[in-house]
């Protein structure tokens, strides 16, 4: 079943088109990422799902029911906020039980459910503390428990890991993923970190200028970017200009080529080109080399077993034709 459906949804703020005619279908039980730079419309899409914003055009359905005109408090959808938005005047347990309290669940029952939710996010016994006494990572878990205790049909996460340090972030990525699998709740999360989107999501929508540039699996988006923007934003693919691509015997289109698909020298069935080294650095596991070839700058990850080429040296590089991915547009 479709959990969230957007049909030609727009949200304009005056002349600013924050979200512009977006079509989207998120399946039930999916871990869905909305990826894009700030101002790309991903957060506004999330807010449209939560009900904090209303579309200026189009139609939104949540599990088949019309969502426009429905206030956030009447949607069985919960949000983990970027700044966590824990209520500072309530204890952790009261924070977690809040959703059940306003729905009129009896006190004993809701406190029990809140304790269980805290245990689920590995914070048992923290109920009596105040939000101010917790670390960033702990607050994040509380925000998660506070949302999940309501058993939402869709959980929205707004840059959930943005404020955490690297180590904590990697740990939480795994935990979120396993939590999502065990609960079976549809997760929709917003991020500007492509690594996070690629490692966690079942599918990714890449946003730019209020529109979805590409929607697909992490592998799709990473290996077969549809547009220059996606190739630029996701991963570190080379975007090759149409003339360069044509010169290698392909159609006159922009194309993307991942640096790790490029090797030094030539081989059978490979396409080769030569270029002058403009920068080279040793990264441990590989050497990263940038060459200038036919007016294009191409980055390549070369095996570390070969010594780093000198700057100014002309070298020959090659790749397998199936690794070259043609994109839309010739401009």
């Amino acid at each position: 079943m479709t959990a969230v459906l957007f049909q030609q949804v727009s949200r304009h703020f005056g002349a600013v088109r924050a979200v512009d005619s977006v079509d989207l279908a998120i399946a039930e039980g999916e871990f869905f990422a909305m990826l894009g730079p700030s101002g790309s419309g991903k957060t506004t899409c999330l807010r449209l799902m939560a009900g904090f914003e209303q579309p200026t055009g189009g139609h939104i359905e949540i599990f088949g029911e019309t969502a426009e005109g429905v206030p956030p408090y009447r949607r069985n959808v919960n949000t983990v906020f970027q700044d966590y938005a824990l209520f500072p005047h309530l204890s952790i347990l009261e924070n977690v039980a809040y959703g059940l309290m306003v729905k009129g669940v009896a006190k004993a029952e809701r406190l029990k459910a809140a304790e269980e939710a805290l245990a689920m996010v590995k914070l048992p016994g923290y109920g009596t503390r105040r939000p101010g006494q917790l670390s960033g990572g702990q607050r994040q878990r509380v925000a998660l428990a506070r949302a999940l205790v309501n058993r939402p049909r869709v959980l929205l996460l707004d840059e959930p890991l943005g404020a955490l340090d690297l180590k904590l972030r990697e740990q939480m990525q795994e935990e979120l993923k396993s939590l999502q699998k065990s609960l079976g709740i549809t997760f929709v999360f917003v991020t500007h970190d492509q690594g996070e989107a690629l490692s966690m999501a079942d599918r990714i929508a890449v946003f730019s200028d209020g529109k979805i540039q590409q929607l697909g699996t992490p592998e799709d988006v990473y290996k077969r970017p549809k547009t220059r923007f996606v190739a630029d934003f996701v991963g570190s693919s080379n975007v090759l200009p149409p003339d360069f691509v044509e010169g290698l015997g392909f159609g006159k289109h922009y194309a993307s080529l991942r640096p790790e698909a490029i090797d030094l020298g030539d081989g059978p069935g490979r396409k080769q080109f030569s270029g002058r080294v403009t920068a080279a650095s040793f990264l441990g596991a590989a050497n990263r080399v940038t060459v200038e070839a036919n007016g294009a700058r191409v980055a390549a990850m070369l095996s570390a077993s070969i010594s780093v080429p000198a700057q100014g040296e002309t070298i020959t590089l090659s790749f397998l034709p199936q690794d070259l991915h043609m994109m839309d547009g010739t401009q």
Partner: peptide, 17 residues
């Protein structure tokens, strides 16, 4: 913070609550 009010609505509290 504005998100406190939004969080409350998100968790099911109407304006009066």
């Amino acid at each position: 913070s504005g998100s406190l009010v939004e969080a409350s609505a998100d968790l099911g509290a109407d304006s009066f609550q």
